[in-house]
Design a protein around this nucleic acid. Sequence first.
DNA 1: GTCTATAAGATGATAGAC
DNA 2: GTCTATCATCTTATAGAC
Lengths: 179, 179
Amino acid sequence: MDSATQILEIAERRMRQVGYNAVSYRDIAAEMGVKSASLHYHFPKKEDLGVALVRRYANNFRAHLAASTNGEVDPQTAIAAFVDICRHALTEQHLVCLCAVLGAEAPGLPHPVTIEVKNFFNDNIAWLAARYEALGFKGAIDHARTTLALLEGAMIISVVNDDITIFNAAVKSIQEKLT
Amino acid sequence: MDSATQILEIAERRMRQVGYNAVSYRDIAAEMGVKSASLHYHFPKKEDLGVALVRRYANNFRAHLAASTNGEVDPQTAIAAFVDICRHALTEQHLVCLCAVLGAEAPGLPHPVTIEVKNFFNDNIAWLAARYEALGFKGAIDHARTTLALLEGAMIISVVNDDITIFNAAVKSIQEKLT
DNA sequence: GTCTATAAGATGATAGAC
DNA sequence: GTCTATCATCTTATAGAC
């Protein structure tokens, strides 16, 4: 794993725990065993790191989605795969969605970072909407919107409570509509 | 308005925009026209300010709820009042719930602050659950959980998008279940 | 209650050696 | 690519005068 990737890996995990401003170049460098000046070679400004972080996260998310739904997968299973990505992060890593954290502090982030977060939300609403549409839902776009909002909110509350009960309730609600 | 209240007022608005770590004593003091040292007289440590902030927010939220549902109000109207408090903050002030923001960065906050955030979530889930129960809902507690998660998530995404469409979709989803 | 003054430490960032 | 060295600035926080 090259340095740039390692930086992104560490920064993502930390930001998903404590937010953008609470993560410093020093912290990341210390965990890597290098000096903070080295990070500036790869990401000159923190804004550059933030943008790269969200882009990579969005791409990885899309890749996981594609891997879980390759071949001819029915829309119902595809939506379940979407939910499972969130569940996996929550149960295996105790992490919420990167964009839930950054979205919560969006007005305080460098504008280019906020734009990436916004894109993540809209891209995934569109992805979900296409599946709801394929299932013949009336108001597919609104079902997509509530599904994403529900997952993002439930992840946050679940981590605060250190209890996935609320996430499970959210999943149940999504699944009930699918049947 | 006394100084302590003024500090809380300014700190709340700013933290609901940019998060806990991005708000400094200096910023708040500058907006008040005083020096940052003065703030430490009222709230010696930032953690004290954080705790007071969430407690006041939770109390105000509860007070607004009580004011909107005084007398004999049916549970359906009570839940609608809950939703309207969120809507009002979003449309009139472009602010999300304080606990949505702090919840997103919870593992990085002083522990006493996180506890207050956790209490806010649990208190309001209980409040909503009591209303769903009164309406005869099966799994009232899970309906309460999804309602809160949905509102919190929708507020975040709405602010990022500067568009209340997603919040409106969330409200529609809550209302549909109530009919 | 608010001020001045000050402290110790963190922060993002850069220049230049290796 | 990573290092040392350095920077200006910001951060929370305290002591003591008014």
